[in-house]
Amino acid sequence: MLCLAAAVDVPGCFGAEPYVELVRLAERGGLDFVTLDDSFVRPGPDALAVLSRAAPVTRRIGLVPTLTTTHTEPFRVQAAVATLDWVSRGRAGWRIDVSAGEDEARLFGRRRAASAEVLWDEAGEVAAVAARLWDSWEEDAEIRDVPTGRFLDRETLRRVDFTGGTFSVRGPSTVPRPPQGHPVRVVDATEAQARTVAARYADVALIRVATPAQAAAVREELCARAAESGRDPETLRTLVSLLVDLGDGEYAAEPGHGGGGPRPTARGPLYRGGPVGLAELVAGWHADGVTDGFHLVPVEPRRDLERLVNGTVAVLQHRGLFRTFYPGSTLREHLGLARPADPYAMTGGTS
Protein backbone atom coordinates (compact mmCIF):
# COMPACT_ATOMS: atom_id res chain seq x y z
CA MET A 1 0.00 0.00 0.00
CA LEU A 2 1.43 3.34 -1.08
CA CYS A 3 1.14 6.15 1.48
CA LEU A 4 1.16 9.79 0.43
CA ALA A 5 1.19 12.85 2.67
CA ALA A 6 1.90 16.55 2.19
CA ALA A 7 2.94 19.56 4.21
CA VAL A 8 0.59 22.56 4.15
CA ASP A 9 2.95 25.16 5.59
CA VAL A 10 2.36 28.69 4.27
CA PRO A 11 5.21 31.03 5.33
CA GLY A 12 4.08 34.47 6.44
CA CYS A 13 0.40 33.54 6.66
CA PHE A 14 -1.47 34.18 9.91
CA GLY A 15 -5.09 33.46 8.92
CA ALA A 16 -6.54 29.96 9.05
CA GLU A 17 -8.36 29.92 5.72
CA PRO A 18 -5.36 29.49 3.36
CA TYR A 19 -4.30 26.45 5.38
CA VAL A 20 -7.82 25.04 5.40
CA GLU A 21 -8.02 25.48 1.63
CA LEU A 22 -4.81 23.47 1.19
CA VAL A 23 -6.04 20.72 3.52
CA ARG A 24 -9.24 20.39 1.51
CA LEU A 25 -7.24 20.27 -1.71
CA ALA A 26 -5.08 17.49 -0.28
CA GLU A 27 -8.21 15.60 0.75
CA ARG A 28 -9.54 15.87 -2.79
CA GLY A 29 -6.40 14.04 -3.88
CA GLY A 30 -6.99 11.26 -1.35
CA LEU A 31 -3.76 11.91 0.57
CA ASP A 32 -3.36 10.02 3.82
CA PHE A 33 -2.58 13.06 5.93
CA VAL A 34 -1.23 16.59 6.01
CA THR A 35 1.37 18.02 8.36
CA LEU A 36 1.69 21.54 9.68
CA ASP A 37 4.95 22.54 11.29
CA ASP A 38 5.29 24.72 14.37
CA SER A 39 7.94 26.42 16.48
CA PHE A 40 8.00 28.69 19.49
CA VAL A 41 10.12 31.29 17.69
CA ARG A 42 8.81 31.18 14.14
CA PRO A 43 6.04 33.66 13.28
CA GLY A 44 2.78 32.04 12.38
CA PRO A 45 -0.40 30.58 13.85
CA ASP A 46 -0.53 27.62 16.20
CA ALA A 47 -0.48 24.40 14.16
CA LEU A 48 -2.84 22.54 16.48
CA ALA A 49 -5.38 25.36 16.38
CA VAL A 50 -5.24 25.62 12.58
CA LEU A 51 -5.80 21.91 12.02
CA SER A 52 -8.56 21.92 14.62
CA ARG A 53 -10.19 24.56 12.43
CA ALA A 54 -9.77 22.26 9.42
CA ALA A 55 -11.32 19.26 11.18
CA PRO A 56 -15.03 20.16 10.86
CA VAL A 57 -14.75 21.11 7.16
CA THR A 58 -12.98 17.90 6.11
CA ARG A 59 -14.17 14.30 6.35
CA ARG A 60 -11.35 11.82 5.78
CA ILE A 61 -7.85 13.25 5.59
CA GLY A 62 -5.51 12.88 8.57
CA LEU A 63 -4.46 16.03 10.45
CA VAL A 64 -0.95 16.02 11.95
CA PRO A 65 0.27 19.19 13.72
CA THR A 66 3.74 19.52 15.20
CA LEU A 67 3.80 19.80 19.00
CA THR A 68 7.17 20.09 20.67
CA THR A 69 7.83 18.16 23.86
CA THR A 70 10.32 20.77 25.12
CA HIS A 71 9.11 23.55 27.46
CA THR A 72 5.58 22.08 27.34
CA GLU A 73 3.59 20.06 29.84
CA PRO A 74 3.24 16.43 28.71
CA PHE A 75 -0.20 16.15 30.30
CA ARG A 76 -1.50 19.09 28.26
CA VAL A 77 0.13 17.90 25.06
CA GLN A 78 -1.51 14.47 25.18
CA ALA A 79 -4.88 15.99 26.09
CA ALA A 80 -4.66 18.42 23.16
CA VAL A 81 -3.86 15.64 20.69
CA ALA A 82 -6.64 13.45 22.10
CA THR A 83 -9.07 16.36 21.76
CA LEU A 84 -8.10 16.81 18.10
CA ASP A 85 -8.78 13.10 17.58
CA TRP A 86 -12.26 13.55 19.01
CA VAL A 87 -12.94 16.72 17.04
CA SER A 88 -11.81 15.07 13.79
CA ARG A 89 -13.53 11.74 14.57
CA GLY A 90 -10.37 9.71 14.54
CA ARG A 91 -8.11 11.54 12.09
CA ALA A 92 -5.53 13.09 14.42
CA GLY A 93 -1.81 12.62 14.46
CA TRP A 94 1.01 14.20 16.42
CA ARG A 95 4.32 15.11 14.88
CA ILE A 96 6.69 14.91 17.83
CA ASP A 97 9.54 17.41 17.84
CA VAL A 98 11.96 19.10 20.23
CA SER A 99 13.07 22.71 20.74
CA ALA A 100 16.85 22.84 20.88
CA GLY A 101 17.51 26.57 20.55
CA GLU A 102 18.55 28.92 23.34
CA ASP A 103 16.20 31.54 21.89
CA GLU A 104 13.27 29.20 22.50
CA ALA A 105 14.47 28.42 26.02
CA ARG A 106 14.62 32.14 26.85
CA LEU A 107 10.93 32.50 25.99
CA PHE A 108 10.12 30.31 29.00
CA GLY A 109 13.03 31.04 31.32
CA ARG A 110 12.73 27.77 33.20
CA ARG A 111 15.86 26.04 31.93
CA ARG A 112 18.70 26.40 29.49
CA ALA A 113 18.77 24.76 26.08
CA ALA A 114 19.93 21.13 26.25
CA SER A 115 21.64 18.81 23.80
CA ALA A 116 19.67 16.97 21.15
CA GLU A 117 20.33 13.67 22.92
CA VAL A 118 18.83 14.92 26.18
CA LEU A 119 15.83 16.48 24.44
CA TRP A 120 15.02 13.36 22.45
CA ASP A 121 15.34 11.20 25.55
CA GLU A 122 12.74 13.47 27.12
CA ALA A 123 10.58 13.25 23.98
CA GLY A 124 10.60 9.48 24.27
CA GLU A 125 9.37 9.69 27.84
CA VAL A 126 6.60 12.07 26.77
CA ALA A 127 5.55 9.72 23.98
CA ALA A 128 5.48 6.82 26.44
CA VAL A 129 3.43 8.60 29.09
CA ALA A 130 1.04 9.99 26.47
CA ALA A 131 0.10 6.45 25.47
CA ARG A 132 -0.48 5.53 29.12
CA LEU A 133 -2.71 8.57 29.60
CA TRP A 134 -4.70 7.81 26.44
CA ASP A 135 -5.30 4.35 27.90
CA SER A 136 -6.26 5.68 31.35
CA TRP A 137 -9.97 5.66 30.43
CA GLU A 138 -11.48 2.29 29.59
CA GLU A 139 -13.58 2.20 26.44
CA ASP A 140 -16.88 2.18 28.36
CA ALA A 141 -15.89 4.74 31.01
CA GLU A 142 -18.55 7.20 29.82
CA ILE A 143 -21.94 6.00 30.96
CA ARG A 144 -23.94 9.27 30.56
CA ASP A 145 -26.69 8.09 32.88
CA VAL A 146 -29.11 11.03 32.89
CA PRO A 147 -31.50 9.75 35.61
CA THR A 148 -28.66 9.39 38.12
CA GLY A 149 -26.58 12.29 36.83
CA ARG A 150 -23.53 10.05 36.42
CA PHE A 151 -21.33 10.93 33.45
CA LEU A 152 -18.65 8.30 33.97
CA ASP A 153 -17.80 5.22 35.94
CA ARG A 154 -14.88 6.10 38.18
CA GLU A 155 -13.98 2.44 38.51
CA THR A 156 -12.95 2.41 34.84
CA LEU A 157 -10.40 5.22 35.20
CA ARG A 158 -6.78 4.21 35.77
CA ARG A 159 -4.09 5.99 37.72
CA VAL A 160 -0.97 7.03 35.84
CA ASP A 161 1.91 7.96 38.11
CA PHE A 162 5.00 8.58 36.04
CA THR A 163 8.30 10.17 37.01
CA GLY A 164 10.79 10.83 34.24
CA GLY A 165 14.11 12.57 34.00
CA THR A 166 12.65 16.07 33.75
CA PHE A 167 8.95 15.80 34.62
CA SER A 168 6.33 13.84 36.51
CA VAL A 169 2.71 13.15 35.57
CA ARG A 170 -0.26 11.96 37.54
CA GLY A 171 -3.32 10.66 35.70
CA PRO A 172 -5.88 9.75 34.60
CA SER A 173 -6.27 12.01 31.60
CA THR A 174 -9.00 14.63 31.48
CA VAL A 175 -10.03 13.42 28.00
CA PRO A 176 -11.71 10.06 27.27
CA ARG A 177 -9.77 7.45 25.31
CA PRO A 178 -9.39 8.82 21.76
CA PRO A 179 -11.40 7.30 18.88
CA GLN A 180 -8.20 5.79 17.44
CA GLY A 181 -7.10 4.50 20.82
CA HIS A 182 -3.78 6.22 20.22
CA PRO A 183 -3.59 9.09 17.72
CA VAL A 184 -0.90 8.46 15.11
CA ARG A 185 2.56 9.53 16.26
CA VAL A 186 4.94 10.87 13.62
CA VAL A 187 8.69 11.49 14.07
CA ASP A 188 11.23 12.92 11.65
CA ALA A 189 13.92 10.26 12.02
CA THR A 190 16.48 11.89 9.73
CA GLU A 191 18.79 12.82 12.58
CA ALA A 192 20.37 9.99 14.56
CA GLN A 193 19.20 11.36 17.92
CA ALA A 194 15.53 10.98 16.92
CA ARG A 195 15.74 7.41 15.65
CA THR A 196 15.40 5.69 19.00
CA VAL A 197 12.15 7.55 19.68
CA ALA A 198 10.90 6.82 16.16
CA ALA A 199 11.71 3.13 16.43
CA ARG A 200 10.07 2.72 19.85
CA TYR A 201 7.05 4.98 19.65
CA ALA A 202 6.32 6.33 16.16
CA ASP A 203 3.67 4.95 13.85
CA VAL A 204 5.22 6.94 10.99
CA ALA A 205 8.89 7.85 10.57
CA LEU A 206 9.80 10.58 8.11
CA ILE A 207 13.26 10.33 6.55
CA ARG A 208 14.85 13.06 4.43
CA VAL A 209 17.09 11.16 2.01
CA ALA A 210 18.14 11.74 -1.60
CA THR A 211 18.68 8.19 -2.89
CA PRO A 212 16.91 4.84 -2.71
CA ALA A 213 20.00 3.31 -1.10
CA GLN A 214 19.88 5.87 1.73
CA ALA A 215 16.16 5.25 2.20
CA ALA A 216 16.69 1.50 2.38
CA ALA A 217 19.51 1.84 4.91
CA VAL A 218 17.57 4.11 7.27
CA ARG A 219 14.44 2.00 6.97
CA GLU A 220 16.40 -1.15 7.77
CA GLU A 221 17.96 0.53 10.81
CA LEU A 222 14.59 1.73 12.10
CA CYS A 223 12.99 -1.69 11.65
CA ALA A 224 15.89 -3.36 13.46
CA ARG A 225 15.64 -0.92 16.36
CA ALA A 226 11.87 -1.41 16.49
CA ALA A 227 12.35 -5.15 16.77
CA GLU A 228 14.98 -4.70 19.49
CA SER A 229 12.50 -2.60 21.50
CA GLY A 230 9.90 -5.37 21.32
CA ARG A 231 7.79 -3.93 18.50
CA ASP A 232 6.66 -5.59 15.32
CA PRO A 233 8.54 -3.64 12.60
CA GLU A 234 5.46 -4.03 10.38
CA THR A 235 3.67 -1.53 12.62
CA LEU A 236 6.10 1.24 11.61
CA ARG A 237 5.58 3.14 8.35
CA THR A 238 8.58 4.95 6.84
CA LEU A 239 7.94 7.82 4.43
CA VAL A 240 10.60 9.64 2.42
CA SER A 241 10.22 13.39 2.91
CA LEU A 242 11.05 15.49 -0.16
CA LEU A 243 10.83 19.14 -1.06
CA VAL A 244 9.04 19.37 -4.42
CA ASP A 245 9.27 22.19 -6.95
CA LEU A 246 6.83 21.59 -9.80
CA GLY A 247 6.95 25.16 -11.07
CA ASP A 248 8.34 24.58 -14.57
CA GLY A 249 6.79 21.21 -15.23
CA GLU A 250 8.57 18.38 -16.96
CA TYR A 251 10.92 20.82 -18.67
CA ALA A 252 12.55 21.63 -15.31
CA ALA A 253 14.13 18.18 -15.04
CA GLU A 254 17.91 18.29 -15.31
CA PRO A 255 20.77 16.09 -14.14
CA GLY A 256 20.12 15.37 -10.47
CA HIS A 257 16.43 16.16 -10.84
CA GLY A 258 13.42 14.65 -12.54
CA GLY A 259 14.23 11.14 -13.66
CA GLY A 260 17.65 11.41 -12.03
CA GLY A 261 16.16 11.73 -8.56
CA PRO A 262 16.24 14.37 -5.84
CA ARG A 263 19.20 16.66 -5.25
CA PRO A 264 20.54 17.40 -1.75
CA THR A 265 20.06 21.02 -0.65
CA ALA A 266 20.48 22.96 2.58
CA ARG A 267 16.75 22.51 3.29
CA GLY A 268 16.74 18.81 2.46
CA PRO A 269 16.39 16.65 -0.66
CA LEU A 270 14.67 18.55 -3.47
CA TYR A 271 12.83 17.16 -6.47
CA ARG A 272 12.55 19.70 -9.27
CA GLY A 273 10.64 18.62 -12.32
CA GLY A 274 7.11 17.82 -13.36
CA PRO A 275 4.18 15.88 -11.89
CA VAL A 276 4.70 12.91 -14.20
CA GLY A 277 8.39 12.63 -13.32
CA LEU A 278 7.49 12.78 -9.64
CA ALA A 279 4.96 9.99 -10.15
CA GLU A 280 7.69 7.90 -11.77
CA LEU A 281 10.00 8.51 -8.83
CA VAL A 282 7.31 7.67 -6.25
CA ALA A 283 6.30 4.51 -8.10
CA GLY A 284 9.88 3.37 -8.61
CA TRP A 285 11.08 3.82 -5.05
CA HIS A 286 7.95 2.19 -3.65
CA ALA A 287 8.21 -0.75 -6.05
CA ASP A 288 11.82 -1.28 -4.95
CA GLY A 289 10.58 -1.65 -1.36
CA VAL A 290 12.77 1.12 0.09
CA THR A 291 9.86 3.15 1.46
CA ASP A 292 6.18 2.85 2.35
CA GLY A 293 5.47 6.18 0.69
CA PHE A 294 6.29 9.86 0.55
CA HIS A 295 5.78 13.02 2.55
CA LEU A 296 5.95 15.87 0.04
CA VAL A 297 6.74 19.45 1.02
CA PRO A 298 5.71 21.95 -1.68
CA VAL A 299 8.18 24.77 -2.33
CA GLU A 300 5.29 26.98 -3.47
CA PRO A 301 2.34 25.71 -1.43
CA ARG A 302 -0.72 26.36 -3.57
CA ARG A 303 0.88 25.87 -6.99
CA ASP A 304 2.81 22.72 -6.16
CA LEU A 305 0.04 21.06 -4.16
CA GLU A 306 -2.41 21.62 -7.03
CA ARG A 307 0.02 20.05 -9.49
CA LEU A 308 0.71 17.23 -7.08
CA VAL A 309 -3.00 16.41 -6.73
CA ASN A 310 -4.06 17.02 -10.33
CA GLY A 311 -0.92 15.56 -11.90
CA THR A 312 1.15 13.19 -9.78
CA VAL A 313 -1.72 11.64 -7.83
CA ALA A 314 -3.84 11.34 -10.97
CA VAL A 315 -1.05 9.45 -12.75
CA LEU A 316 -0.57 7.09 -9.79
CA GLN A 317 -4.32 6.47 -9.59
CA HIS A 318 -4.51 5.80 -13.33
CA ARG A 319 -1.81 3.15 -12.94
CA GLY A 320 -3.61 1.56 -10.01
CA LEU A 321 -0.86 2.49 -7.56
CA PHE A 322 -2.86 4.83 -5.34
CA ARG A 323 -6.44 4.69 -4.12
CA THR A 324 -9.26 6.69 -5.68
CA PHE A 325 -11.30 6.84 -2.45
CA TYR A 326 -10.78 6.49 1.28
CA PRO A 327 -11.73 2.94 2.33
CA GLY A 328 -11.92 3.89 6.01
CA SER A 329 -12.63 6.91 8.17
CA THR A 330 -9.63 7.11 10.54
CA LEU A 331 -6.00 7.93 9.92
CA ARG A 332 -4.97 4.54 11.26
CA GLU A 333 -7.20 2.88 8.69
CA HIS A 334 -5.65 4.97 5.90
CA LEU A 335 -2.19 3.80 6.94
CA GLY A 336 -3.17 0.17 7.45
CA LEU A 337 -2.43 0.35 11.18
CA ALA A 338 -4.48 -1.53 13.76
CA ARG A 339 -6.24 0.35 16.52
CA PRO A 340 -4.44 -0.36 19.83
CA ALA A 341 -6.60 -2.51 22.07
CA ASP A 342 -7.74 -1.27 25.46
CA PRO A 343 -5.10 -2.85 27.75
CA TYR A 344 -7.44 -2.92 30.73
CA ALA A 345 -10.20 -4.67 28.81
CA MET A 346 -7.58 -7.27 27.81
CA THR A 347 -6.65 -7.87 31.46
CA GLY A 348 -10.14 -7.93 32.83
CA GLY A 349 -10.02 -4.36 34.11
CA THR A 350 -7.12 -4.78 36.50
CA SER A 351 -4.57 -1.98 36.84
Rank of each mutant, 00 (worst) to 15 (best):
P43V: 03
P43N: 11
P43S: 09
G44N: 07
G44T: 05
G44P: 04
P45Q: 06
P45A: 09
D46F: 02
D46K: 02
D46S: 08
A47C: 01
L48G: 05
L48C: 07
A49P: 00
L51F: 08
L51T: 01
L51Q: 04
S52E: 03
S52A: 15
R53Q: 10
R53M: 06
R53E: 04
A55R: 00
P56A: 06
P56E: 06
P56T: 03
P56L: 10
V57G: 07
T58H: 01
R59G: 01
R60N: 05
R60C: 00
R60L: 00
R60Y: 11
R60T: 04
I61H: 05
I61P: 04
G62P: 08
V64G: 09
P65S: 07
P65I: 03
T66M: 01
L67T: 10
T68Q: 03
T68L: 05
T69H: 05
T69N: 02
T69K: 07
T70S: 07
H71C: 01
H71F: 15
H71I: 06
E73L: 06
E73M: 07
E73N: 15
P74F: 12
P74K: 11
R76Y: 14
V77Y: 13
Q78P: 08
Q78Y: 10
Q78M: 15
A79T: 10
A80N: 13
V81D: 12
V81T: 12
A82F: 12
A82C: 12
A82L: 13
T83F: 03
L84W: 10
V87N: 02
V87K: 02
S88W: 02
R89Y: 06
R89S: 15
G90H: 03
G90R: 04
R91L: 04
A92H: 08
A92G: 11
G93A: 05
W94A: 10
W94G: 09
W94M: 11
I96P: 11
D97F: 00
V98T: 15
V98G: 00
S99W: 01
S99A: 15
S99Y: 01
S99C: 02
A100H: 03
A100R: 05
A100S: 12
G101A: 13
G101H: 05
G101D: 11
G101F: 04
E102V: 10
D103L: 05
A105E: 03
A105Q: 04
A105T: 00
A105R: 02
R106S: 11
R106E: 14
R106L: 14
L107H: 11
L107C: 10
L107Y: 04
F108C: 04
F108N: 05
G109R: 08
R110E: 14
R110T: 10
R110K: 05
R111A: 14
R111W: 04
R112W: 02
R112D: 13
R112S: 14
A114M: 12
A114W: 08
A114L: 15
A114Q: 13
A114D: 09
S115N: 11
A116S: 13
A116D: 11
E117S: 14
E117F: 05
V118I: 11
L119T: 08
W120R: 06
D121Q: 14
D121A: 14
E122N: 03
E122P: 06
A123I: 08
A123H: 12
A123N: 07
E125M: 10
E125R: 09
V126D: 07
V126N: 10
V126I: 13
A128F: 05
A128I: 02
A128D: 15
A128H: 14
V129S: 09
V129T: 12
V129Q: 09
V129H: 11
V129Y: 13
